[in-house]
Design a protein around this nucleic acid. Structure first.
Lengths: 123, 123
DNA sequence: TATAATAATAGTAACGATTATCGTTATTGA
DNA sequence: TCAATAACGATAATCGTTACTATTATTATA
């Protein structure tokens, strides 16, 4: 395999991201991994998240403030609570109606749907 | 009216934003308005866009890179071309199916749906 | 119309998130 | 085991955005 090497840090980053469903920011991941890698660098986290996004194995979600990452690369929707800032998956649903698909002037390759509101935990 | 004054700059900002459909960034608006307001400040653009978002008369769209603004505050979808970076409105469509609505653990107040792909202009 | 109160501005510094740089370390294939 | 080099940690630089402050413009009132 030319050009790509393994690293304990990269394995730990993807492992940590995929083991949680809270769509953490780079910095959140960084602090979680600090326990096992006391001198982990935030730049390393960003660099690896970028690489993983590029090869399509994870997803970056652009939101207000710091971007959040999702270890589940299969397209799906998210719900963002304006109270607790928690982001939850909304699975197994296609948001696209026939009318929507027919009114787009282009070929849809991907999408990002974020719903905003207050989650059930926050009443 | 307590606390709010008019300003030529604010009027021009909302006027410019509402007269175009390309979902400009703050900086794009800034340069467009520079002609009429040679010493307009970028901070003024940001401040007013923020105020207008707060009172719900415009919308901010979080995307990769600089945020984009939409003078049309009525919820609707967007299509972002990965080639020309153009952002187009997708009108008169509700993206929500019954199955989606029923699988959300909270009350939906708003949403942001961006479709990614290549627009017809870019083949 | 002049005046006083104050919201809004321009200019600029500061900030937070992210990316780039660079010398050192770890991984890998021979 | 060694050489080549990808990845790292530390940190500087960049970018988008917000905050600060002295000045200007708007507005209500006399």
């Amino acid at each position: 395999m030319a050009g790509i090497k393994h690293s304990r840090q990269r394995d730990a980053i993807i492992n940590e991201l995929c083991s949680r469903t809270d769509h953490p920011t780079a910095e959140t991941l960084y602090w979680s991994l600090k326990e096992d890698f006391p001198n982990l660098s935030l730049g390393t986290v960003y660099r690896n998240l970028g690489l993983l996004c590029d090869d399509g194995s994870i997803i970056k979600i652009s939101v207000d403030g710091a971007d959040r990452y999702d270890g589940n690369a299969k397209p799906h929707c998210h719900f963002l609570c304006r109270n607790c800032k928690g982001m939850f998956d909304v699975h197994n649903v296609s948001p696209f109606s026939e009318t929507l698909l027919s009114s787009v002037n282009g070929e849809i390759e991907n999408y990002s749907l974020t719903l905003y509101g207050v989650c059930k935990n926050c009443v």
